[in-house]
Computed example of a mutant assay.
Amino acid sequence: MDHAAVLARYDRDMREGARPDGPGARIERTGGVVRQIADPLGWNGVLWSGLDAACADRAIRAQIAYFTGLDRAFEWKLHAHDEPADLGARLLAAGFRAEPVETLMVGEVADLALDTAPPDGVRLVEVTDAAGVGLAVDVHEKAFGTDGAPLRHRLLARLAADPGTAVAVVALAGAEPVSAARMELVPGTSFAGLWGGGTVAAWRGRGLYRALVGHRARVAAAHGYPYLQVDASPMSRPILERLGFQALSTTTPHLYGI
């Protein structure tokens, strides 16, 4: 993989050329940034910026004023290769809070190891209705210990408006949901995004995460996407590396008002 070329393509397709991630959201390009505005349960934030030292602080202040004027908490999705080099420090000085660093990982679908099956007694089921959304949200809340209301809202909205662009998968042990993950297929781009992979504590270490990656990769391949992209935690990075993903950069969510 040509890391520099694929990273440039990712920035162009998924950040600078971003599309709204759900119905009711919109993308705006203004003042050297690309931002998404959604309702309070959607994702609000800055996806990309083309700034330099002379204009960065002014742009940061403008985004704070804009989102707080809408009564929206928001995220500035900072990548390690963004300019200026001290943009993270400038965000912290302006009142943002940095979340743990994640690794931007990309895999070429044709080169990935996709033959991982779920453990015996576990089946993978794609989410197609409100009941399936409920199963995925149940896993999310148990695995991450966070409120699943925003995820429920986003999945139901995507299923209603454009079910072909969002794929959520639940692993069921009998009738019990034990792992879940989702994928976003963005038309007109080369990248399918893998998001939200989580497994309840009692089922970790049994290959469910790998099986869910493999399932989504096969779906992405069937839709013609050459690349998969993941913002990987330190726990998932080594699993993804073994499957054939490569690290291209890091990303650090910077939160304001959250």
Rank of each mutant, 00 (worst) to 15 (best):
F96C: 08
V122I: 14
V125T: 12
H79I: 08
G95I: 04
P84W: 01
L112M: 09
E141Q: 08
G95S: 11
T128P: 15
M105S: 04
G121Q: 05
A131F: 05
L78Q: 00
V106N: 12
D120L: 08
L87F: 09
V139Y: 11
L124W: 10
V133L: 14
D115Y: 10
A94I: 01
D120F: 01
A80S: 13
R123K: 10
T116L: 13
D138C: 13
A93I: 14
G132A: 01
V109P: 07
K142A: 03
T116P: 12
A117V: 15
E99F: 11
V101W: 07
V127S: 04
T116W: 15
V137I: 14
A117K: 13
P84C: 02
P118Q: 05
L114H: 10
L114P: 15
P118R: 02
V101A: 07
A143H: 14
L124A: 01
A89T: 15
L87H: 03
L87C: 02
E83T: 06
V106H: 08
P119F: 01
A110M: 07
V106D: 09
L135T: 15
L112N: 07
L114E: 04
V137M: 07
L114C: 01
A136E: 14
V125R: 12
D120G: 00
A113G: 07
G107D: 04
F96E: 04
